[in-house]
Design a protein around this nucleic acid. Sequence first.
DNA 1: TTCCAAAAACTAATGTCGTTAGTTTTATAA
DNA 2: TTATAAAACTAACGACATTAGTTTTTGGAA
Lengths: 191, 191
Amino acid sequence: MSPRIGLDLPTILEAATEIADTQGFDQVTLAAIAQKFNIRPPSLYNHVNGLQGIRQLLKLHGLTILHSNLSQAVQGKNGDEAVHALSDVYMAFARMHPGLYEATIPAPEVEDQEAVMLGEQIVRIFIEVLQTYGLDQEMSIHATRGLRSICHGFASLEQQGGFGIPLDLDLSQKLVLNSFLAGLQQMKNLL
Amino acid sequence: MSPRIGLDLPTILEAATEIADTQGFDQVTLAAIAQKFNIRPPSLYNHVNGLQGIRQLLKLHGLTILHSNLSQAVQGKNGDEAVHALSDVYMAFARMHPGLYEATIPAPEVEDQEAVMLGEQIVRIFIEVLQTYGLDQEMSIHATRGLRSICHGFASLEQQGGFGIPLDLDLSQKLVLNSFLAGLQQMKNLL
DNA sequence: TTCCAAAAACTAATGTCGTTAGTTTTATAA
DNA sequence: TTATAAAACTAACGACATTAGTTTTTGGAA
């Protein structure tokens, strides 16, 4: 029932990930992957649903790692400590896996249930961390959007070479987070 | 000295912009542009340096509009009012010209002096607005990075369909900005 | 041990791109 | 009226994704 066990999906995904992270997400082509294994591009269709399939897998892979890392990072933490841990791990992922990070950005198609769920779980981690600030339901969603925007904005601008001035980026990230969190505290006190 | 005045660069740029904003930046192809004018793709090389040239033009065009809009928006304003005006105009641009906005994100090549300068001028607008908060040189850079990250993060996540929950996005943006600005005030008071 | 079915590779072919080279057309300026 | 130069064209090539159909291979059944 299993003749010719050649390439398998994890191996292909690994190769695609390496191309994405070293050469850029847009350099992930069937031709480039096939070349890595010394096979012809059409052979990849035995394992994967074309280029679109590869991209879908990369997105899922990226979301899985990101979710796992974020989840671990906030274990046993709350408040500012948890927020900073979240942001640190988020940035670390974007830096270590730029191609994979890029793959995670566009919202998955509704067909891709697994990716949709992972995306929701990631958002839930953010929400839960921010709920410890004593915000009501709606405010915690607004705050989550803010925190995600800060994280993604920083990661994206850094990745795209948007920060030209030579001044410690980690420090910027910390200060900006503290600013945002101080503001949150103040809003909570106004309730 | 000017035989056969056919297509001109502004017209081509207009067509490319329309494709980018309605079908996505990655749908801007020489083939698609050529089709709009009923000419063959190679003819475009008489006006433009290939696909790379088109993308460069789109970036420049986007940065020009964005800079102009931001510049107007902060005229005669300062403090929170200026920051909110900045963010409102920024989001409005990203929403009205999603393709153009996408084109502006990757930092231009050093060869592209004009685009580099426009990018710097845009950053300067942010810095100048934030300097009215009485921050020192370095802090105003950190704060600028934060404000840009919030703006870009919001715009990018919204554009990529990252905000699923049906809750007023403009309100989120306002609240997040207020949070960040309140935090800034607090940091200033600590000096 | 032999053989067959299915998995996984292959070749061939098509269509879409971008791009280069070389040719033809055409409007204007002399 | 004519020469020139811009701007279109055709032809051709290489990179890519994709489909269809073919060959190879191997593990398990006979």
